[in-house]
Amino acid sequence: MEDRHSAKQTCGGGVLFAIMFIVGLAGALVAGWWGFPQLLYSQNSQPIRFSHKVHAEAGGMECKQCHTYAASGQYVGLPSTEACGECHADETGGKSDSDKEIDKLVKTYVQPNKPIPWLTYQFQPDNVFFSHSAHTGFECVSCHPDVAKMDNPPVYYQDRLSTYSKQTMRMPGCERCHAELGVNNACYVCHK
């Protein structure tokens, strides 16, 4: 404490200060850009490793075949367990990974007829009003991840604090598109 006035100390301190400053800066940047997202988002996988690729390509199914628009267009919806059961009524008994996954589906959900807790990447919070019927002119993939070509469903990142899905389209995204297309951006167009 007493020798803090010495010139040497000040000088050396200055260099040390600068070095440590840079160390701190770098550390914070790494922690903030790499570490923080790990902390903020939980990573979840779908209850069943559903392959859109198999269904879309091999099965020759259209998106809308399972994701039927509800009559009012309000909620595009996920297929019901019954719908899955139409094709996967019985266990395959197979040994391959796919067969095992199908058997898991049949055993855990189809047979007891329990709803499958699918994770919705674009899940919107309660205060959002979204109508698919007003957006029929768009390709599904302009907002949704193009899962049709995916064999594995992507990881679902959920913000631990807000409970939002990381992939959810956020307000600025909606607003931008509305603005570009000259569509009303009034609050109640999208909020309820």
Binding site: S72, G73, Q74, F129, S131, S133, K192
Partner: peptide, 12 residues
Amino acid sequence: HRWNYAKEKARQ
């Protein structure tokens, strides 16, 4: 919301 529903219905 009822207005929104009515608009949805009209669109359909």
